[in-house]
């Protein structure tokens, strides 16, 4: 392996299917390793040989720009051989099964699979049927663990001790894998987690996860140390439980005017892609509190760390 990153520690988890069930030590090791890789990205060469000879397949059964590029970039910076496979999961439904597709690809000798899929738990099927290391790049509204890890990294860089700090996820919680993974990760770090949005976008019984719920954005702005603004999926919502984007922006969109009531050092995150003028205004998206482009860079660094640390299990995942 490479000299730049010397790690003797191993992750307890063999795959990365979700944050739920992970331990804090694993997250700490990933964040620590991510910082080392971030330094690599600052060097002129930007590249290490850590995954030389390792083949990673990116299977994307749902549209993705950022996550896919980020993973591909991370894999290439680690010198892995990268293969991309994209299809809609609905085409899978008609023809070859997911298991057959994945087994065929694995038969060509691969080591790791990064997958995005519309169905929660699709990764568990892969794990049960393949020998490769599986990394979840998003499964329906279930989990998006690498997003939670890069969010956590971006928060911890500014606020190293999260214990007792209140982090609010704003917006479409019910359809959000980012929300679920963030909740699990933040709670492992001792943060108070709050969700805020219109009642129809807050899923049932979420308070039983130890999460505070408010519909009032002003209250959330006043009491939060960090706000993670989730994307409103424009194509999905307007209908029986969502009146209009106009109303959403007026009551739950983050504007500089509303932020005036926030703590001075409030941190604003957005997992992207942003709908400017809907959930977030220009002056906030480009303002002093946001760390949105840090998140993007941290995304590459943390995915390098995850790929690298999990590669220790290649050949012995089961």
């Amino acid at each position: 392996m490479d000299d730049t990153v010397k790690g003797t520690k191993l992750l307890k988890t063999k795959h990365l299917l979700g944050i739920k069930g992970m331990c804090r030590e694993d997250l700490e090791l990933i964040l620590q390793t991510s910082e080392s890789f971030k330094q690599v990205l600052d060097t002129p060469n930007k590249k290490v040989a850590a995954l030389k000879g390792v083949t990673v397949v990116n299977m994307f059964f749902e549209n993705s720009t950022r996550t896919k590029i980020s993973f591909e970039m991370a894999e290439k910076r680690l010198s892995a051989d990268v293969v991309n496979f994209a299809a809609s999961s609905s085409s899978l439904k008609k023809g070859e099964t997911l298991i057959d597709t994945a087994k065929n690809i694995e038969a060509m000798k691969i080591d790791m699979v990064v997958m995005r899929h519309s169905t929660p738990g699709a990764h568990k099927m892969l794990m049960d049927n393949l020998n490769s290391i599986i990394i979840n790049a998003g499964d329906g509204a279930h989990e998006h663990p690498t997003q939670a890890i890069l969010d956590l990294m971006s928060i911890v860089q500014k606020k190293p001790n999260l214990k007792g700090k209140r982090v609010t996820l704003v917006g479409d919680i019910v359809h959000s894998r980012v929300a679920m993974s963030n909740i699990h990760a933040l709670k492992l770090y001792g943060a108070k987690v709050q969700v805020c949005g219109p009642s129809t976008l807050i899923p049932k019984d979420i308070e039983k996860m130890g999460v505070e719920v408010t519909y009032d954005l002003d209250e959330a702005i006043r009491n939060s140390d960090v706000m993670n603004i989730l994307r409103i999926q424009l194509e999905r919502h307007v209908g029986a439980s969502f009146p209009s984007l106009r109303e959403y922006h007026n009551y739950w969109g983050i504007t500089n005017e509303k932020l005036a009531r926030a703590k001075n050092d409030i941190l604003i995150l957005h997992p992207g892609p942003m709908n400017r003028g809907v959930e977030i205004d220009d002056d906030v998206a480009d303002g002093d509190h946001q760390v949105i482009l840090d998140q993007v860079l941290n995304g590459v660094a943390s995915r390098m760390a995850i790929l690298y640390l999990l590669s220790a299990n290649i050949g012995g995942a089961k």
Partner: peptide
């Protein structure tokens, strides 16, 4: 079912 489980699993209910 719509419940804590569907919330955590992100499944439609």
């Amino acid at each position: 079912n719509e419940s804590l489980s569907s919330t955590e699993l992100g499944m439609s209910y």
